[in-house]
């Protein structure tokens, strides 16, 4: 009794990279990065204004100034972490053996 060889199992549907993943626009990430930089810069400017008002005695509540400072600090740290991840990925690609 002859057994049938296992035939080629056809794929149910072809996986198309083009249709499955929506391709992003080329400038999306750089636009996002620029926007994030702008927001972090706004936070820094706001914290700086708060510090100037505090130094000149115009501010009413101290904790708003401190909270603005902390928000700016967390924003900067988030930006630094994004930059670290980007550089790690870039150096991984540079170390890739051809």
């Amino acid at each position: 009794m002859a057994t049938e060889p296992v035939g080629f199992i056809p794929a149910q549907r072809e996986i198309s990279l083009d249709s499955a993943v929506p391709r992003e626009q080329p400038g999306d990430f750089s636009a996002w990065l620029a926007g994030s930089l702008g927001r972090v810069n706004q936070d820094l400017v706001r914290a700086d204004e708060g510090l100037q008002q505090l130094a000149s005695g115009e501010t009413q509540n101290l904790h708003q100034v401190m909270i603005a400072l902390e928000e700016a600090r967390i924003g900067v740290q988030l930006l630094v972490q994004v930059r670290n991840r980007l550089l790690d990925a870039y150096q991984d690609i540079l170390r890739m053996q051809v």
Partner: peptide
Amino acid sequence: YLQAFAISASGMA
């Protein structure tokens, strides 16, 4: 976390 900051700031005020 900005919302947590705002809530704490209201309590501080």
